[in-house]
Amino acid sequence: MTALIGYARVSKADGSQAIDLQRDALAKAGVDLEHHLYTDAASGKRDDRLGLEACIKALRHGDTLIVWKLDRLGRDLRHLVNLVGDLTKRNIGLKVLAGEGASIDTTTANGRLVFAIFAGLAEFERDLIVERTKAGLAAARARGRSGGRPFKMTPAKLRLAQAAMGKPETKVAELCAELGITRQTLYRFVGPKGELRIDGQRMLDRRKAK
């Protein structure tokens, strides 16, 4: 049976910001607040939000994630694109009720088109960052310096991350600390359910080829 799952967030945990407006909007949209609402009191710039992690793990095939405004999910465009991309692969819809993202409803053709535009912008931003990074490294090499951080993900860590992410009780922050990798690195190779992403599959394919 499919469900409407709600997620709400305020930035401060000191009680100075009320979540009631979001709760009311989600309830009006059909969300069962008692059983299907997940909340956080944390900055949207953080991707280690326990409420959001629990929400993503609770979503099942055919469900729809509903948020009041798009910025409740996060303020980083690439994070949003990756998140919705994962939901889409799992056949989970996203519906935004208000604000600039109110035209996003990935259960409809128009909503998917709007999201595709967001994805295109994120890819453009990513390409610009890569281009600037390459230019910076080239300039450093020309001056006799080398740059770049060491590569921290390994096939062994990747397999451990897959197994751990497949368990509902796994805390992503603790897993990253144990493996000695950043959350960004983890999600680059493994999805929220332990599924391999493109970079993860490439790493394992390269290992098999040796």
Rank of each mutant, 00 (worst) to 15 (best):
M1T: 10
A3P: 07
L4H: 08
A8V: 03
R9P: 01
R9Y: 03
A18F: 07
A18R: 09
I19F: 02
Q22P: 01
R23Y: 02
L26T: 00
K28I: 14
G30Q: 06
H36T: 12
H36S: 15
T39P: 08
A41I: 04
K45P: 06
R46F: 12
D48G: 05
R49I: 02
E53Y: 10
E53M: 14
I56K: 04
I56G: 01
A58K: 11
A58N: 07
G62C: 01
G62A: 09
I66K: 04
W68V: 04
K69H: 14
L73R: 03
D76H: 08
L77A: 11
H79D: 15
V84P: 01
G85Q: 00
L87M: 02
L87S: 02
T88S: 13
T88N: 12
R90G: 08
I92H: 01
G93P: 00
L94S: 00
V96T: 01
E100Y: 06
I104W: 00
I104M: 00
D105W: 01
T106P: 00
T107E: 05
N110K: 11
V114N: 12
V114E: 09
F115I: 02
F115K: 01
I117R: 09
F118W: 12
F118N: 08
A119W: 03
G120D: 08
G120M: 05
F124G: 15
F124C: 15
E125N: 12
E131W: 08
G136D: 11
A139V: 12
A139L: 15
R141Q: 14
A142E: 13
G147W: 15
G148C: 05
P150A: 13
K152T: 07
T154A: 05
P155A: 13
A164H: 05
M165T: 00
E169R: 09
L175M: 02
C176G: 02
A177F: 06
A177D: 12
I181P: 04
T182A: 15
T185A: 14
Y187V: 01
R188T: 11
F189I: 06
V190S: 04
G191R: 00
P192R: 03
G200V: 06
Q201M: 09
R202M: 11
L204D: 03
D205K: 08
R207M: 07
A209G: 10
A209V: 06
K210V: 07
K210A: 11
K210E: 10
